[in-house]
Design a protein around this nucleic acid. Structure first.
Length: 285
DNA sequence: CCGTTAACCTGAGAGC
DNA sequence: TGCTCTCAGGTTAACG
């Protein structure tokens, strides 16, 4: 499901609801996620207080005391859900359906007032426990700076490009290079930058790179303000759907008219490394 | 080292 | 209605 904006919306929702709450118990119904849920998982989390929740690229980080962390990656279809409790506390649901989809509820965290449910039909998501600052830092060496970070700048890009011949789309999707951008937003960013997704990074001008930096930030920030994208049934804390999907310029707009002013082009769908790619041949080159 | 592909899963929707 | 096929917001091991 989620790229950086959706994970940010979920994280902000969680902060409002379960920051400073104690995990009374954890129940794992299916340990076969992307990586096996470890055996000590339930025991380890029992009675831990969530001191803070934050996001790093597409990861949600639950922070406990003494530099203990729980990392959650939502994969393609992972969602979190807080069902309505008798106390009258409102629903926190990332589904449009009022019913909780029980079948793929794999992990449930029990708090005093809430249950937090992890649901994931495809099971590409996963949890990871990190027991100290060193493990934490080590873990995140796998990803590059996130797209909203100042470290993602012109010098960094020039260094990373260094004569590679990868196309710009795969380059931006490579989380080791820059993290947080996924298949929706990479299409939108390249459209705004007026650059063809298939273009080799070594052929990009300095101006191109500046546009990529600028629009990476503006598109992601705007998507966050819009509450993320709801392609299927993503919802934030307030129960509102994300609205960014109504702002798509190219994603899922195959055969529709290009929305650029004074452009008579039609959005085309192609495949790059087996992933759908949307572009306007007239605007992007 | 670099770039690409297959694989991990289930469900929704299209086409017949 | 039901079958088969393709595709989906991600990551990464394996390969040439």
């Amino acid at each position: 499901m989620p790229e950086l904006p959706e994970v940010e919306v979920v994280t902000q929702s969680l902060i409002k609801r379960i920051k400073n709450c104690k995990i009374n118990s954890v129940k794992v119904y299916n340990r076969s996620l992307r990586y096996k849920v470890p055996f000590q998982f339930e025991k380890y989390l029992k009675n831990k207080i969530i001191k803070n929740i934050r996001r790093k690229s597409k990861y949600i980080i639950f922070e406990f005391n003494y530099n203990n962390y729980l990392i959650l990656h939502l994969g393609m279809s992972g969602t979190l859900h807080i069902p309505q409790m008798k106390s009258g506390i409102s629903n926190l649901s990332f589904y449009q359906s009022p019913q909780i989809p029980i079948k793929h509820n794999h992990v449930i965290f029990n708090f005093v007032k809430y249950k937090l449910i992890y649901n994931d039909p495809r099971r590409f998501g996963y949890f990871k426990i990190l027991k100290n600052k060193q493990e934490f830092d080590m873990y995140f060496t796998r990803i590059g700076p996130e797209a909203l970070d100042r470290k993602f700048n012109l010098n960094y890009l020039l260094n990373k490009i260094n004569n590679r011949k990868k196309n710009i789309k795969n380059f931006l999707l490579d989380q080791k290079i820059v993290s947080g951008i996924g298949n929706i937003y990479v299409n939108e960013i390249l459209f705004k930058s007026k650059i063809l997704p298939s273009k080799s990074v070594r052929k990009l001008s300095i101006l191109d790179l500046k546009k990529i930096l600028k629009f990476s930030r503006s598109v992601l920030r705007y998507a966050i303000r819009q509450g993320g994208s709801s392609i299927k049934d993503f919802k934030g804390l307030s129960g509102n759907n994300g609205k960014f999907q109504t702002r798509f310029k190219v994603y899922n707009r195959d055969k529709k008219y290009c929305l650029s002013r004074n452009c008579n082009g039609v959005i085309k769908k192609i495949y790059i490394s087996n992933r759908s790619t949307f572009l306007c041949n007239l605007c992007q080159n």
